[in-house]
Design a protein around this nucleic acid. Sequence first.
DNA 1: GGCACTTCTTGTCGATCTGACAAGAAGGTA
DNA 2: TACCTTCTTGTCAGATCGACAAGAAGTGCC
Lengths: 244, 244
Amino acid sequence: MSAMRDRWQSSGVLLTVDLVILTLREDRLRVLLVERGNEPYQGAFALPGGFLRDRSEGILAAAARELSEEAGLDAGTLHLEQLAVYGDPGRDPRGRVVSVAHLAVAPRLPEPVAGTDAADARWIPVDHVLDESTPLAFDHLKIVIDGVERARAKLESTALATAFCGQTFTLSELQRVYEVVWDTRLDARNFYRKVQGVRGFVMPAGPIRKTEGGRPARLFRAGPTTVLYPPLVRPDRTAQGEDR
Amino acid sequence: MSAMRDRWQSSGVLLTVDLVILTLREDRLRVLLVERGNEPYQGAFALPGGFLRDRSEGILAAAARELSEEAGLDAGTLHLEQLAVYGDPGRDPRGRVVSVAHLAVAPRLPEPVAGTDAADARWIPVDHVLDESTPLAFDHLKIVIDGVERARAKLESTALATAFCGQTFTLSELQRVYEVVWDTRLDARNFYRKVQGVRGFVMPAGPIRKTEGGRPARLFRAGPTTVLYPPLVRPDRTAQGEDR
DNA sequence: GGCACTTCTTGTCGATCTGACAAGAAGGTA
DNA sequence: TACCTTCTTGTCAGATCGACAAGAAGTGCC
């Protein structure tokens, strides 16, 4: 009963925020990791993040602050959303630490800014993390897995892909986002048709053009739509040989 | 840098779990709410939930415990997943309380069990909550909105709908789930074809039949698939009169 | 039993969408 | 100019979708 809900207990825990910051660099999906300088897990890579500054700091605000402090990125200019909470007892050997993980998606970026807290941050290919050739501290592998899956899923139904691109982009750049994040290949001509068929997904950005080899491509910018209809469904990886 | 991450601060907060428990009763989508007996928000409805029991209790475990204590439901038999964290400073007038909201989906249920903590729990139609004719305590309206939207979205791409049904069900029962949760109407014949076209979504459950008026329907049970491919896309509510 | 009524299930049909592919357009470079 | 690259517009057959007809299999009523 309500008495239970209101039993005022001192179940205080330490709250942190962790960040899965994804971007595309050199045609690979990468995640920003920092090398730990202290025990536990000294020398291992970990997600950027940290404790709430004080009791009055909001959780999303803390994530934005860490984004700035540890990665040198401005939360105002990129996609940032809550991912999930990780609070198993024992996930941190130092005590009961509950972490609110966030997913950030950044467009092509300058190198992690030296001279800041982000100096020892590195953009590690996501597949190096997923195949565990780059071991992560704490339960951060699980967090990265969840973050990547979230990104893959949201590519289908939302305009998240545009967050990987700059202010303006060509459709083949957008296609590369889908191909790299989904780890699949798409037909450029069908992609072209499909993307332009989704109302409000992309809007022509002037007659400006830019080039890098072949015929110059038209530029687009993100449209007003956040929910894609119809969605761009990723090809079924488990298509053949399925039981009934 | 890592020194920042490891600064050991006493940012302790009080951690609670809250539950958005959805079910279908009398052809309406309903959420389980409890009337608050204490200040603040005395007399208002609130989501079931409560503080972690102690520092060693896992978050999902706490949600399962509250599910049992406050709703008389067994977490082993129904769908339970983490929804999101709500931790804005000021959301609870008593102090810095961070709540991990969970989404539970229950099949047709007996009345809230009298004589337990769940005695004053009531199944309130979700639309009464969404249109604010039933005001909720704290930021629980926001949590219900997010929970319902999560359920609506997961109906498209996962087998969540089967969690609203019993062990076995007819396809028209399953269709009612989609219609009520999405607040839309579907053509029974097309639904029939589509559902059976998704590999592993539903499996025939013996030649058993059951009836209630017309021709007896075949019984099905949930299949092994959790991810629907192809997805069941909900009809576009913003279809016509859209700009380009 | 015969008939009306209900709901379930199988089909049909045209419009639309999808995936595979051809071919032209518009630049760069040798 | 010839060739290469990439972008963009089409084409076409097969799959899918939404709307709908019609038969199947029960119940209840006379």
